[in-house]
Design a protein around this nucleic acid. Structure first.
Lengths: 224, 224
DNA sequence: TTAAATTCATGACCCGAATCAAGTTTGAAA
DNA sequence: TTTCAAACTTGATTCGGGTCATGAATTTAA
């Protein structure tokens, strides 16, 4: 990817949108673009962080693998979103792995470049703090739903959240396969199947592969 | 609490340890000290954040309550630790409540004061980012242990972690009552009791109220 | 010091969701 | 296309840990 394209992507990213052209250029000189084939990993747990990532195209799955080999998906990154910020500021390695679920393009913005900008631009500081804080809040929400809700409630909450973010709220599309969704919701794929069947039988949703029609939002919200 | 004492506490706090005396004074003028009686709440879910907190004395329990009234403890704050940073940088209210489990003294550092310092001091920016990132990592660890480990493994992990942080690793003291510990580990108090009994019967620990002697670290690490 | 309230331990029982198994559907690659 | 692996569904069974109940042991406050 050529420098001018990198520059374009960087200045389109909300975190850097207030920067002057020369600052963007400086940042771009510390930025590399990477292409990751569907299925391969961008980094593994334990890898050292050299910067943080901005996803341009495709999708990245963030997750953990237990010593026993069980997998837990922590999040799905979509184009325009960044990830890996938090690890930059700790002298630690990644606690999670990152794997492409589609053919994917990312920018890797080097630690040095971002630290230079942080020292010189207040807006970037604020937005970086806000970004990491937002992820923080998301994690608290995740703990809350895993801890205090049963499997149906977790799926319903997830569907309603996607619905809220969607341009067409009563016709949503799952952003990944059901094994991944199940793992995010901390249930097995079998349980996901059964819960979806229950919601269909209750006349609340209609499932067609990854396409889900929400036929009764209120009923869904009040289920069980 | 008088200003000079507040100034003392602020400059002893790692996040502000590099600041000049005049910066500390400026910060102190935006800081109030609060005393919270054991059992009362410092803030509730939904409250607006006006600053962040530095715990001087006592203990603060951070948690969530579900609509059904079930409680989940997210963390225990000890003297010298800060909390509430993340919410400052989002235009949102607290997602958790904070309750004193002992008679407690805190400093409340106002949003304006901290934003002023952030605009002018690079070390505070770095440390603030590192602090929020560290909490981030802790949350990921929590999700991991809730998601991928059974109740015994969670308790063992917790005991070993306390042991690591303790000056006397084979003689630890629980930092809160067992109901709170159980909630942090996402199990019921009954299950906590039973797991502790199992570990005692296996000759790995000896329990005396909140005092726990670890009699076989290796066995504990490899249990089950 | 005593009374009352919490906290903790232990037993009996139950339930949600995991596991195991088998078959079906889907979709990617040849 | 056809083929083969991966994804998904459905059923039978099991099990970890929750719930409910009771009593004992601590704390707290009067």
């Amino acid at each position: 990817m050529n420098t001018s394209l990198i520059t374009q992507h960087l200045s389109a990213f909300y975190m850097f949108s207030e920067l002057q052209p020369n600052q963007i250029d400086q940042l771009a000189s510390g930025t590399r673009s990477l292409e990751i084939a569907r299925g391969s990993t961008l980094f593994n747990r334990g890898d050292k962080a050299n910067g943080f990532y901005l996803l341009l195209e495709g999708q990245i799955k963030l997750g953990i693998i237990s010593p026993q080999g069980d997998e837990k998906v922590i999040g799905l990154i979509q184009p325009g979103e960044s990830f890996g910020e938090a690890v930059l500021f700790l002298e630690r390695s990644f606690p999670i792995y990152a794997q492409a679920t589609l053919d994917t393009k990312v920018l890797l913005i080097s630690r040095d470049a971002i630290f230079d900008i942080l020292d010189n631009d207040v807006t970037v500081v604020r937005r970086m703090l806000a970004g990491i804080s937002a992820r923080n809040r998301q994690l608290v929400n995740d703990i809350e739903s895993i801890s205090l809700q049963n499997s149906s409630q977790r799926l319903i909450g997830y569907l309603l959240q996607i619905s809220t973010d969607s341009p067409n709220p009563d016709r949503i599309k799952l952003p990944a396969n059901k094994l991944t969704i199940a793992s995010m919701l901390n249930i097995t794929p079998e349980t996901l199947s059964r819960v979806m069947l229950r919601l269909q039988n209750a006349g609340l949703i209609e499932v067609d592969g990854k396409e889900i029609a929400i036929t009764n939002v209120v009923g869904l919200r009040n289920f069980q």
